[in-house]
Amino acid sequence: MQQSDFTAAILDPNAPVPPGLLDPEGRPAGKRFNVYRNNLAASLTDALETGFPVLARLLGADSFKTLSLIFSRAHPPTSRALSQYGAAMPAFLEGFEPLAAYPYLADIARLELAIRRSYHAADADPLNAAGMDPATLMEQTPVLAPATQIVASPYPIHGIWRRNTQPDAPKPQPVAETVMITRPEFDPIPHLLPAGGATFAGALDGRTTIALALERSIEATPGIDLAPLLTLFLTSGALTFQKGPDQ
């Protein structure tokens, strides 16, 4: 028996059990083979439920389980580390006709994948602006910390995320929202990124000063208030310094 036959039969619940697999009486394995099918389906459904808690909450347990089964057969894992399993979920949801009326779900999946990437990202010392005079601060050339992740959406993904994770969170308003996830210590925190924030973050490449990055943000989004934007980046652990090759 080839492992390719075994694999194909595990992934297709309607496929016949491969020949040569037996019960102790020498009869075809039948239901015994289904243990392997069930193990795989249950473990992947669990992994997706753990990885997409807000998506699961929005869809409800039964619908999410159905979605998980369909998704996991179409996209079985390609890596043994399941911490990023479901990377194909956003694109899958965008093409999934039964949920076409809920186009924000794909971006919620993107947000939850970004939270997981943040959780497992490398540790970094945050830029510490305390005691730094403003002129010195403006000349710093930081980068985004490895755990900092940005997800932009035409939908209120921060509001939807809050509404489904925090008691008494307000009802989401129908606006486009960009989320920045930072990880001050071990727990990723999704922040609503103010206008100009994505431009500011995108400008920080380790050579560009904070002053120049702020200038770019104003050019891209005239009239924005720079103070709350800068405060968010400086107090959330979003920034760090690039390490040189010898560090």
């Binding site: 492992q3 390719s4 079985p76 390609t78 890596s79 043994r80």
Partner: peptide, 17 residues
């Protein structure tokens, strides 16, 4: 046991002859 075939990871401990 085995658990991968090509690029597919089956997340289980599968049996061998």
């Amino acid at each position: 046991a085995w658990s991968t075939h090509g690029d597919t990871y089956l997340n289980d401990l599968l049996p061998l002859p």
